[in-house]
Simulated scan of single mutants.
Amino acid sequence: MRSRLLFSAFLWIISEAHVILLTEMFGEIRTPNFPDSYPSESELTWNITVPDGFRVRLYFMHFDLEPSYLCEYDYAKVESEDQVLATFCGKENTDTEQAPGQQVITSPGNFLSLTFRSDFSNEERYTGFDAHYSAVDVDECADKSDEDLMCDHYCHNYIGGFYCSCRFGYLLHTDNRTCKVECSDNLFTQRSGVITSADYPNSYPKSSDCLYRIELEEGFVINLQFDDVFDVEEHPDVSCPYDYLKIKAGKREYGPYCGEKSPGRIETGSNSVQILFHSDNSGDNTGWRLSYTVTGTPCPDLRPPVNGKIEPIQSKYTFKDQAVISCNPGYHVVKDNVEMESFQIECRKDGTWSNRIPTCQTTEKNMRLS
Rank of each mutant, 00 (worst) to 15 (best):
V84N: 07
N47P: 00
E92I: 11
G53N: 06
V50K: 05
N93I: 14
S80C: 11
Y73I: 07
Y75G: 11
P67K: 15
S80P: 03
T94C: 11
E66C: 07
W46D: 08
C71V: 10
D74C: 02
T45I: 06
K91E: 11
V78I: 13
D52Q: 08
W46L: 12
E72W: 09
N93F: 12
D64K: 02
L58E: 01
S68K: 12
W46T: 13
T49C: 03
N47L: 03
V56K: 01
V50A: 00
F60A: 11
K91C: 02
E81Q: 13
G53F: 09
T94N: 02
Y69Q: 12
V50R: 01
R55A: 10
A86P: 06
A86T: 02
L70G: 11
E81L: 09
L85E: 00
D82N: 15
K77M: 13
D82W: 11
E72Q: 06
P67F: 14
D52S: 06
F60G: 10
I48A: 00
K77R: 14
T87S: 02
V50M: 03
E92S: 14
D64M: 10
R57H: 05
E72S: 03
N93A: 02
V50Q: 02
E66M: 13
N93H: 15
R57M: 15
R55E: 13
E72H: 13
D74Q: 12
T45K: 07
A76M: 15
E79L: 01
L70N: 15
E79K: 07
M61Q: 15
Y59R: 10
A76N: 07
Y59G: 01
Q83H: 08
F63L: 10
E81C: 08
D82V: 07
T49G: 00
E92R: 09
E66A: 10
Y69C: 08
V50L: 02
N93G: 14
A76Q: 14
T94E: 08
A86Q: 12
Y73C: 09
